[in-house]
Amino acid sequence: MTLTNEIVKQKLIEKFGDQLTNWEEPYNFLTFTAPKDLNIKILQFLYDDETLKFRFLTDLTAVHYPDRKGEEIAVVYHLHNLEDNIRLRFKVYTDEEKTEVFTATALYETANWLERETYDFFGVHFIGHPNLKRIMNVEEMDYFPLRKQYPLEDQTREDKDDEMFGRGGSIF
């Protein structure tokens, strides 16, 4: 029996019930949303289950949605079952003021630097991370540059008043 998105979804619903929401399959990539305190339980279940065997963390990153009040930051996990070759993505949302999310480093060494990167750019605090400090930016930096409130170009400059090319900040 080959593992399909349907079976993965059923298994997860059996285990976690309606706590998992927003089931989608964009471009055949199974996606769902979970409460943030469940993230490690889900990763562990997906890892341990003998049918699911999601034992490879492909990617971990975050997205900032400033308009979603109380759940501005989405932490996104991409997992891969290499044996059955099936992928899965899930997101946990967190408040941009209180960004504590449990770390996945106990399960995956991969998560170490990916979580540091996510902390560096989005300010997500991974509870239990062995070495949570900035990785790309200088340690003295006091903001999280990939959040949407920080524009790409310095808004106080006057020599680049060219809104047609997306520099004035009005287009995006």
């Binding site: 990617d59 990153t61 900032h64 060494e109 991969t110 170490n112 630097w113 990916l114 995006f172």
Partner: peptide
């Protein structure tokens, strides 16, 4: 749906395996 990506993330293999 805007003119640019809302978010783009590169999974860079070197970055991930250099941890080891």
């Amino acid at each position: 749906g805007g003119r640019t990506p809302y978010r783009l993330h590169f999974r860079r293999p070197s970055f991930i395996y250099y941890q080891a």
